[in-house]
Measured scan of single mutants.
Amino acid sequence: TETYETTDETEARKIAEELKRRGLTFRIERHGTTIRIESD
């Protein structure tokens, strides 16, 4: 499991693209301005 936290929408998108490219599944949670991406 890898966890990323960012407040930057663009960075979050880049992380999501990278995880997809590596064939990982992940979920995105939003907590206020923080975007949390957690891979399975």
Rank of each mutant, 00 (worst) to 15 (best):
residue 19 L to T: 00
residue 1 T to L: 12
residue 20 K to P: 00
residue 11 E to Y: 08
residue 19 L to R: 00
residue 10 T to G: 13
residue 2 E to S: 08
residue 26 F to H: 04
residue 19 L to H: 01
residue 11 E to K: 06
residue 27 R to S: 07
residue 31 H to N: 12
residue 6 T to V: 10
residue 8 D to T: 05
residue 26 F to R: 01
residue 22 R to F: 03
residue 10 T to W: 12
residue 18 E to M: 14
residue 17 E to Q: 12
residue 38 E to M: 15
residue 6 T to Y: 03
residue 19 L to N: 00
residue 39 S to E: 05
residue 24 L to V: 11
residue 26 F to V: 13
residue 3 T to V: 15
residue 12 A to E: 01
residue 28 I to Y: 05
residue 33 T to D: 14
residue 16 A to R: 05
residue 18 E to H: 09
residue 15 I to A: 02
residue 5 E to N: 05
residue 36 R to A: 03
residue 24 L to K: 09
residue 37 I to M: 01
residue 4 Y to C: 07
residue 30 R to Y: 15
residue 34 T to D: 02
residue 1 T to W: 14
residue 3 T to I: 15
residue 1 T to I: 14
residue 25 T to H: 14
residue 1 T to C: 09
residue 22 R to N: 04
residue 30 R to K: 09
residue 17 E to W: 11
residue 35 I to E: 01
residue 7 T to H: 08
residue 29 E to P: 00
residue 25 T to I: 09
residue 33 T to W: 07
residue 6 T to N: 01
residue 2 E to N: 10
residue 20 K to I: 13
residue 1 T to E: 07
residue 25 T to Q: 11
residue 39 S to R: 07
residue 29 E to Q: 09
residue 35 I to N: 00
residue 24 L to C: 12
residue 30 R to F: 13
residue 22 R to G: 02
residue 34 T to E: 03
residue 24 L to I: 13
residue 11 E to D: 05
residue 17 E to C: 15
residue 16 A to K: 06
residue 31 H to D: 12
residue 1 T to N: 10
residue 4 Y to S: 01
residue 39 S to M: 13
residue 23 G to L: 02
residue 33 T to N: 13
residue 12 A to S: 03
residue 14 K to G: 06
residue 22 R to L: 07
residue 27 R to Q: 06
residue 37 I to Q: 00
residue 6 T to K: 01
residue 25 T to N: 13
residue 22 R to E: 03
residue 15 I to L: 05
residue 29 E to C: 12
residue 28 I to H: 01
residue 40 D to A: 12
residue 20 K to R: 14
residue 20 K to L: 12
residue 26 F to T: 04
residue 17 E to A: 12
residue 39 S to F: 14
residue 21 R to V: 06
residue 32 G to K: 03
residue 21 R to F: 06
residue 35 I to W: 14
residue 4 Y to R: 02
residue 2 E to C: 15
residue 25 T to V: 08
residue 36 R to Y: 09
residue 31 H to R: 09
residue 18 E to G: 08
residue 17 E to T: 09
residue 6 T to D: 01
residue 6 T to W: 01
residue 11 E to A: 07
residue 7 T to Q: 11
residue 4 Y to W: 14
residue 9 E to Y: 09
residue 38 E to D: 05
residue 26 F to G: 03
residue 7 T to V: 06
residue 28 I to L: 05
residue 33 T to F: 10
residue 30 R to M: 12
residue 13 R to K: 11
residue 35 I to L: 04
residue 15 I to Q: 02
residue 27 R to G: 03
residue 34 T to Y: 08
residue 13 R to Q: 13
residue 28 I to E: 05
residue 3 T to D: 03
residue 7 T to S: 10
residue 22 R to W: 04
residue 14 K to A: 13
residue 22 R to C: 08
residue 9 E to F: 08
residue 32 G to T: 02
residue 29 E to D: 07
residue 9 E to A: 09
residue 5 E to Y: 14
residue 10 T to R: 10
residue 13 R to D: 09
residue 3 T to S: 10
residue 35 I to Q: 00
residue 9 E to D: 06
residue 20 K to S: 11
residue 28 I to P: 02
residue 28 I to Q: 03
residue 40 D to W: 15
residue 36 R to C: 08
residue 28 I to T: 06
residue 38 E to Q: 13
residue 34 T to P: 00
residue 11 E to S: 05
residue 39 S to H: 08
residue 9 E to C: 13
residue 13 R to H: 11
residue 17 E to I: 08
residue 36 R to K: 08
residue 14 K to E: 10
residue 39 S to P: 07
residue 1 T to G: 12
residue 8 D to H: 04
residue 31 H to V: 12
residue 4 Y to V: 03
residue 13 R to T: 10
residue 39 S to A: 15
residue 9 E to S: 05
residue 7 T to P: 03
residue 2 E to P: 05
residue 36 R to G: 01
residue 27 R to T: 13
residue 31 H to Q: 09
residue 27 R to M: 05
residue 26 F to K: 02
residue 20 K to G: 07
residue 30 R to S: 05
residue 28 I to N: 01
residue 37 I to W: 00
residue 3 T to Y: 14
residue 34 T to I: 14
residue 9 E to M: 08
residue 23 G to D: 03
residue 24 L to G: 02
residue 31 H to M: 10
residue 38 E to G: 03
residue 8 D to M: 04
residue 17 E to S: 10
residue 15 I to S: 01
residue 19 L to S: 00
residue 29 E to H: 11
residue 10 T to K: 11
residue 37 I to P: 00
